[in-house]
Amino acid sequence: MQQTAVRAARDRTEDRSGARADRGEDDARFSAFVAARWSALVRTAYLLTGDFHEAEDLVQTTLAKAYPQWRRIRDDTVAGYMRQALVNNNRSRVRRRRVVQLLTPFLPDTSAPADADQEPDVLVAALAALPERQRAVVVLRYWEDLSVEQVAHELGCSTGTVKSQASRALARLRTDPNLAGQADDLLGAL
């Protein structure tokens, strides 16, 4: 009886230490992923948001949200998972900002650029003028180099929607005043 109790206590201790070891392993795997993919994710987020600081915030929030799920994310799907999470969180961010703008419609934006290289890139400015979904399609299709099917999968829509959204996005970029004179060179026969 006593031996059984001792064995059970030992098993519990081993379980606990095993779980702790698993958690440590997960943390190490997560930290390695963050360190390796941070720059790439921030760049993707920059194209999605049009602002570098917001991009860093977006990636940081997305990674923090992914952390509790980390154990369930398979290695072969982690890149897609993070891209999808980034797009979804950006969509939430846009919605939240829209609410803030509706609630405070008359407050002027008095913030000045913090440094010189914050001067907006014309292409990023043109992308920022696109609707959120069209922007996500352009970024995933032409920056992440995903196929139409992969983009459809990550955005949770049909391939036809991806094609039509891409077509509309490129049409809008062609006529965007920020890209005046460059649109034909950039977009060519797209």
Binding site: V34, S39, Y46, E56, D117, L123, V139, W143, L187
Partner: peptide, 29 residues
């Protein structure tokens, strides 16, 4: 699409992100 891709790459690579705030992310997570 190469010109668009390279333009996107130029835009995205114009700035270098700060080092990954791994500790902050882990704490928030």
């Amino acid at each position: 699409t190469d010109p668009l891709r390279s333009a996107l790459a130029d835009s995205a690579n114009r700035r270098t992100p700060r080092p990954a705030p791994v500790v902050d992310i882990l704490r928030a997570g």
